[in-house]
Design a protein around this nucleic acid. Structure first.
Lengths: 190, 190
DNA sequence: GTCTATATGCTGATAGAC
DNA sequence: GTCTATCAGCATATAGAC
């Protein structure tokens, strides 16, 4: 067996939150998808649903930010790279049937006022995205201050456009947002 | 009595979804906040929770888009107007204790794959926002095609930044996104 | 139209044999 | 560590008096 029960539970939770959110996901669904009985869930995660969600979000968040260099490194021109990243996201979302790629922001919006513990976890993940994004864009030639602002804009536009595109079933918001974020770099020396 | 029972139910549902999302909001909470007994809820909304949510989202969406001219008309320069709108949003969110101003996008992200009927309602609301936003920015001097793309960018960045700011408890994402969206207009004749 | 009392199913969580 | 059986509580929704 290559994957542990604990890992399968985390993956299942992330997968379900990605498409259904936190509130609509039941521990029974997690149990079934992970092929792990209820008792195993509460053996590995004594604090129950919240703890499973927290660990699943951390793992998903860490994996998701790695897409940034993966999608953008192939493009020498940073403006092209930004456009390509948004275009790739749009294409993948359409091909996947308009389901979410990552549960972090969906769940963050959903639980920001009703699940304080999970809100803190989401904030930690977003913080690490901002730090890693800033580092990447500095590496790509932006000044430190500009890189942080650009990362915040990049993430805000990407996540907002994700929700719009997903709800409208259209790539138009992601394409428009990608062009706008790339345009930010018009004055930069890249 | 100035407000009908039906209106109070809608308002209560919108208020609760705004801070808790759809899944975490129970009809009992709606009943209590609206000061209407369970029977009244199901008398006015025979299809139950979903129907209350649909009507509440429609009303909230219609009210929310009216903030656009309200916040931006005072500013002659469109770039200033955009910055001001994002800054106002950030300030109001911070003063309100980081709770959401509008339930539409939060709920849209939450239910996009689990509640098809509500997803359709959310899509109709977003469509109407895009149409009305485009009209407004044409009125403010943008060309028709540019105005639609700008509206999509504006809404994506605003909503994404809302979630980031709300989760991080910081105005930084909203301020960065506002500056970026305003920068879009750098070449425009306003 | 309003309101109380309640039905029915499902929720997260647990107990305890193996 | 794994698994089955089950708890107690709460969810949405309804019935029926007023």
């Amino acid at each position: 067996m290559s994957t542990s029960t604990k890992e399968r539970i985390c993956t299942a939770m992330a997968e379900l939150m990605r498409t259904q959110g936190y509130g609509a996901t039941t521990v029974k669904q997690v149990s079934e998808l992970a092929k792990a009985p209820m008792g195993s869930l509460y053996h590995h995660f004594p604090q129950g649903k919240q703890q499973i969600a927290a660990e699943a979000l951390r793992a998903a968040g860490a994996a998701y930010i790695q897409l940034l260099p993966l999608l953008m490194d192939p493009h020498d021109d940073l403006r092209e790279a930004v456009s390509a990243a948004f275009a790739d996201a749009a294409e993948q979302m359409e091909q996947a049937g308009w389901i979410n790629m990552c549960p972090v922001v969906t769940v963050a919006g959903e639980i920001a006022d009703s699940e304080p513990a999970l809100r803190t976890v989401a904030a930690e993940i977003l913080d690490s995205w901002i730090v890693q994004g800033t580092e990447y864009f500095v590496h790509r030639g932006l000044a430190a201050g500009q890189a942080r602002r650009f990362t915040l804009t990049f993430l805000s536009a990407l996540e907002g456009a994700f929700i719009l595109s997903r709800t409208l079933r259209s790539t138009e918001p992601l394409r428009a947002a990608g062009a706008a974020v790339a345009f930010q770099l018009v004055n930069s020396t890249v």
